[in-house]
Design a protein around this nucleic acid. Structure first.
Lengths: 158, 158
DNA sequence: TATAGAATTTATAATGATTCTAAAGTAAGA
DNA sequence: TCTTACTTTAGAATCATTATAAATTCTATA
């Protein structure tokens, strides 16, 4: 945890931004909730627990900054709010999501399954792929009664 | 055009909705701008040209209804507005998009490139895929100076 | 240490997309 | 024609997000 904060700090410094206490508090919340998909409001409320004096606008500004630095990814599942998702360290691509239309859960796929598809897109559409967003909508293993997949969140094979 | 409207009318009727003049005007705008990715406001302004008395709320309600019936897909490219995209007739999946981070253009891919990926997801994650959203961000052929792809919008091979 | 200047935060107001509400309009059946 | 349910309109309300102005903090330098 401390190491990751240290590295994010360096990343900020490299663009002449500072890791202020408010920004650090925000980053800590994101790290502590790595599995979740928090909205700005969610983050705000969690940050407030430990740093009650922080303002909502600051949280928004920090999240925007972190998005710019590609520390987090901003995503939208169509429910009217943006959500912020920490990138796995070293990951160069945006991970994928499984949204359950039954219970609303959101699981992550860290593996990059799009290698071949991107090659096709680059060749056939002459489009230089820089990033992607892929979300599947369907029924999760919990709702379908199927067994839990062996590795639901594999550590670092993206 | 008339045939498609007729079919959409039937689809509405099958759920005991009516194709009111306002709804029809909205559908016509969508059909006339099939290649575009219109926001609710865009649709509103286009509908007003021919039916000036229509209200914005009606357009919103109609788009919501059409989304429910899967006549259109509601998408979000991260620019703060929802956009509405007519489904190709017979298409069972949501088509893909190529968003240029340079000029902002949005091109479509009708082909379903995700067959294998979905099979992997179903098997490895025990997730029953019902639909998907796939958007690539990158540089389009116009901005990169590459030649235009042979078939930019293939007719109906999705 | 004092001080100027830049960056940052706070609190609040403003914006803009979307949804809600109440009243009026419309269509279909008895 | 009367009744009932559905639909639309206009405008108000809501909610997420962004902008603003004043206050605060940090940094560098004298």
């Amino acid at each position: 945890m401390e190491q990751r904060i240290e590295r994010i700090k360096k990343q900020l410094h490299s663009q002449s931004y500072k890791l202020t206490p408010q920004r650090e508090a925000t980053v800590r919340v994101l790290l502590e909730h790595e599995e979740d998909h928090l909205s700005a409001e969610d983050v705000y409320m969690l940050v407030k627990e430990k740093s009650p004096e922080i303002g909502l606008a600051t949280v928004y500004r920090t999240l925007e900054l972190l998005t710019e630095l590609k520390v987090v990814d901003k995503i939208n599942f169509g429910d009217g709010v943006s959500r912020y998702d920490l990138r796995k360290e070293g990951a160069t691509h945006f991970h994928h999501h499984l949204v359950c239309i039954d219970c609303g859960s959101v699981d992550e796929i860290q593996e990059d399954l799009l290698g071949e598809v991107e090659a096709v897109v680059e060749q056939r559409w002459n489009f230089i792929v820089k990033d992607h967003r892929l979300t599947f909508h369907g029924i999760c293993h919990r709702c379908s009664g199927k067994e839990k997949p062996e590795k639901e969140n594999p550590e670092n094979n993206g």
